[in-house]
Amino acid sequence: MSVNNLLENWSQFRHFHPVDDKPHDPYKWAMSIDLDACTGCNACSVACYAENNLPVVGKEKYAHGQAMHWIRIERYWDEDDREFPDQGAQFLPMMCQQCEAAPCETVCPVAATNHTADGLNSQVYNRCIGSRYCSANCPYKVRYFNWYDYPSDDNVWPAEMNQQLNPDVTVRGKGVMEKCTFCVQRLHAAKGTARSEGRIVRDGEVQTACQQACPASAISFGNLVDPESRVHKQWQAQQVALDKDVQTKDKEEGGSELRGYRIFEELRPYPSVMYLERVRESAV
């Protein structure tokens, strides 16, 4: 932290992500979720519990809003006063949007949540002191706090049940903030393999747990800067760009044929999850 270093590399330290240039190389993990395919079955959520050692908090704590589901399925109704929801409901899987300009990162007093070189919003459990400022600042409310010491709670992982815990993922103690990581343990493993073979991770080589489970394959996940990846193609086809707060779709008068959008784009967190609008038949 010498002053020399500071002054010599001043321009580097004053560099803005992701607006100044192509944000990440060779990886920028991103997702796209087709709401027309999503059936709201909750398989992704259970798979996430299985993969990421999420505690089951029990009825009482759930009642207090202390659930720990990193990915939750939201069910929305139409907001007109029809007697019956005759166009069905709308489901939306909501998890950490891994924002490029995450509102949570800047406010953490101890820098426990940072932006990684892969474009993830990382949460460093060891570093977290539990001020919950990140959660206060998250527009999506997808950060989950360990209100209790779940590992030592009697019925969370009693004997035998604890053998299911994924050794690749930490079990978080009390007072620590946690959230969806895009299954970073899987990404690391895949990157390691790819590096040892002198290449980058191929599309489809790594899946998140939710994506893997999703019976309707509504979730695609991959490397946004890899032109071969499905996610890249989807974002491209939908003309959604990472560092924009208004997309082509919204600019066009009278609507467009594109379905891609990101939630709360106007707040400029630049989320890495693109949703594809749900389609409803116009003929009935």
Partner: peptide, 24 residues
Amino acid sequence: GGMQMGRKIAVRVSSDKVRLSEEV
């Protein structure tokens, strides 16, 4: 209770407005 309060969270579009065949 399942209302979006006009926040554009889960968005819906009519089928005549999209071209699914051109999507990836």
